[in-house]
Simulated assay, not measured.
Amino acid sequence: MELDASSLNRSLPLRDQIYQMVRNMIVMGQLKPGESINEILIAEILGVSRTPVREAVKRISDEGLVRVIAQTGTFVSPISRDGLEEAYVIRRALEMESARRAAPKFDAAAAEGLEDNIAAHRLAITRGRYTTAIQLDDVFHRTIAEICGFPAIWRAVDISKAQMDRGRYMAIPKPGYGDQTIEQHTAILEALRRKDPEGAARAMENHLETSFRNTLEVAENVLG
């Protein structure tokens, strides 16, 4: 288990940092479906008590990323088609509305920020830095939620999309998928630049539907 005690900031809540560490390991595929989550081992590696670890794992369990089996243990949940589809439905509804509401508020500064994001995303894809590419993808979507004036939309999306993210980390190295994302982000940007609410919402829907289809295609062999 790749955990780094030196990355913990002991002056900040440990449960939140441990939550992010373990959640990222699940989402990025470092912890595989069915793999055991050993709270005692995590606590020992990080040099903390079991309490913040238990709290972090409980939060991850609430998101459906792990399963707690009584008298047996805690295990990484399988990736399921139902889980992927549910995440997609929630994300589509929230992000279409986010794009729709961002369009009337879109200005030159916002356009420049998204242009820079797309350029950095394209470079990451070209250089095969797929983790960076996914992080930049998230920044693109989060920025639109911030522009629309409802940053809590992104917080809700970030929690609900964890299952899709597990598939995304498997899907993005596939040739063409990264370029497809860049093209669709550009279409969203152009609709926002035109201050076209419905055009932005449709472009967002098309982008998320494509991501969902691509994720299903790649994840097919591991779906539970």
Rank of each mutant, 00 (worst) to 15 (best):
G47Q: 05
R155W: 01
V22L: 09
V157S: 04
L12Y: 11
G73T: 03
A187M: 10
V68M: 05
Y88S: 09
S61G: 15
F106R: 08
A109E: 14
T210E: 08
M170Q: 14
Q184D: 12
V48A: 13
Q184M: 15
G29D: 01
L65W: 02
A171L: 02
T132M: 10
A99G: 05
Q135N: 10
A43S: 14
E44Q: 15
R193L: 06
I60T: 08
K174A: 14
D138V: 12
A203C: 04
T131M: 01
R166D: 03
A152M: 13
M96V: 09
E183C: 08
P78T: 08
L31V: 04
E44M: 01
E39R: 13
E209N: 01
E112C: 01
A70P: 07
S160P: 00
S98H: 06
I18S: 08
G176A: 11
D4F: 12
A93F: 09
E39W: 07
P13R: 07
R142H: 11
Q30S: 13
I134R: 04
N24A: 15
S11C: 01
L189W: 01
E95R: 05
E198A: 06
D107V: 02
M96C: 11
A70R: 15
E190W: 00
A203V: 02
K161R: 14
M96S: 11
E39F: 02
D16W: 13
A191E: 02
S98G: 12
A111P: 01
L208E: 07
V139S: 04
R10T: 02
L12R: 15
L3D: 05
I172D: 04
H185I: 12
A133E: 12
I118P: 05
N9S: 10
S211W: 01
A200L: 04
